[in-house]
Amino acid sequence: MTFHITVDGRPVPVVPGQTIGAALHAAGVRSWRTTRFGGRPRGLFCGIGVCFDCLVSVNGRAPERACLAEAAPGDEVTTS
């Protein structure tokens, strides 16, 4: 009963109800963004919407927190 989303074109499995951040973490993707000055890798840190480390763009929208955004079938996630 899992479904898939794509992250930068690659399929990532999701258990319904999971956030995009959790699905990525579960798939072994620990970082999906780099900082704008030092190019440092970033993924989940606070996990509850506080730190904004885990920003992604979903379906071309403005950046949002992967730890809050519940994944939906067909979501196209892009990272930066």
């Binding site: 973490h25 840190f45 996990g47 730890c67």
Partner: peptide
């Protein structure tokens, strides 16, 4: 700030 370092609450939320 290395990936893999989480807050305790973050690990719990996952």
């Amino acid at each position: 700030d290395l990936p893999g370092v989480l807050t305790a609450g973050g690990a719990q939320a996952l």
